[in-house]
Design a protein around this nucleic acid. Structure first.
Lengths: 240, 240
DNA sequence: TTGAAAACTTGATTCAGATCAAGGTTCTTG
DNA sequence: CAAGAACCTTGATCTGAATCAAGTTTTCAA
């Protein structure tokens, strides 16, 4: 596991301070977290943790994108989670990872050894409460993804994926400007996340472009031309 | 919502006492839970909570089976969770349900008004710790289901579903006896859970019977004749 | 007890997306 | 900066499961 320890950033200057597992921690609590944290970076494509590995640490994603993946015995794979900045990696109270975690872009982690973190959890209600919220939010997200995997068509899947990226990266339309997005995954990884093939992903993205819904500036960047059309193309009811 | 209040059962005599959200509660804590609980029953087929409804209560399933479901705007449906005895329904801290919850067999719930339960959570670390465990276990289960929905074939889906039923109902093979199982869902609901059609579910079950893996005694009951063959038919790696 | 509805099975046909195939474009690195 | 490797696109064909169809069996209410 190729990784590199980088300079510590002060928690109060941290870009994910207000959204991560530490968001509800007060100054004293933050000080104890600061004690036990380490920053590491992982290059795009490198594994962070394999299925079956001992879970030595938990972490928040500070920057970059990682995938949580599953594999069947014959090699078919499914990405079961997309981890963006402020998301929490690892599971307190579990010895071994059930999933492969792979850096999809260059990733910076704010890492805690598992044992000290578990101690912190047991003694700091603010942090354990935040972790419940995070777990329940992820559970809702996983269940939303289940209807996508089970019942949506290829074009609905692509539209839902792109809408989700826009929503989760907190990208807003600023007076008339159309949102511009970077795809953090290759066509192949998008296919693994949506349960399609890379050919189908490619074709459906081309179709959305031809329909005038969006416009690719290069293979990994696009502008949304018609946000409402994209929303309608997801097949979803209005969100609650 | 047709429901019926039934006689209270004492917590210490409760069949799910050792597995539900109350499992780590001590005697004092159990006493406070006993204060605010109510038992209700729901007939097979009746809704317990619709998507968009205000969440007035949370509950443990004492007996029976309920489904958590999602619907797309054109009516396509996906069951995103199967709730068995000791499972927890509802989400503290959320105002409205994101899912339809429907009794699939007759169901008995041990119910708590949401607000008093949230108070209990905030003041009873044992219960909130247990709720984190439950949420994280459900998250793992949801992610396991994602690879089924995305990448498994129809026959692997059926084999996985039947294996899961055996595992979650804690049915053991007792000296040579083959496990006998009741299907708690109709073919149509199984199809909604596995993202298949009811016709495909029917055909694949017939195929497993013809292959000698299992044997139906009637439409809702079967014996497993070859547990190893069933396990192999799931397509999974060995579990960790 | 019986008639209708619900649940299930089996067969024929269709189709969305997979697979197979052949190139084109953009990175990477020596 | 050249060449190989990744990554992506587009086309032709195939296939697993959906859809359409026609029954049979079971359940349940009147």
């Amino acid at each position: 596991m190729n990784q590199q320890i980088v300079t510590r950033i002060k928690c109060k200057d941290c870009p994910i301070r207000h959204r991560a597992v530490c968001s509800t921690a007060d100054e004293t609590e933050l000080a104890s977290m600061e004690q036990i944290k380490t920053y590491t970076t992982h290059r795009a494509g490198e594994p962070i943790l394999w299925r079956g590995d001992e879970i030595k640490f938990v972490a928040s994603i500070v920057d970059g994108v990682a995938t949580l993946g599953q594999t069947l015995e014959d090699g078919r794979t499914q990405v079961v989670g997309l981890m963006l900045p402020s998301d929490f990696i690892g599971r307190p109270g579990r010895e071994k990872s059930k999933f492969d975690i792979v850096a999809s872009t260059d990733v910076t982690l704010c890492r805690f050894e598992r044992k000290p973190f578990e101690h912190l959890l047991a003694t700091t209600p603010h942090i354990s409460q935040r972790l419940v919220e995070i777990a329940l939010d992820e559970l809702d997200a996983a269940r939303d993804w289940m209807i996508l995997l089970g019942r949506k068509t290829a074009s609905e899947k692509i539209a839902t994926f792109l809408s989700m990226l826009i929503k989760r990266q907190h990208i807003e339309r600023i007076d008339g400007m159309q949102p511009r997005l970077a795809l953090p995954l290759t066509r192949e990884k998008i296919a693994d996340y949506l349960a399609l093939t890379l050919e189908t992903v490619s074709r459906q993205m081309t179709a959305l472009q031809r329909a005038g819904v969006l416009e690719f500036t290069d293979r990994r960047h696009f502008n949304v031309l018609d946000m409402d059309a994209l929303r309608r193309a997801t097949g979803d009811d209005e969100p609650l």
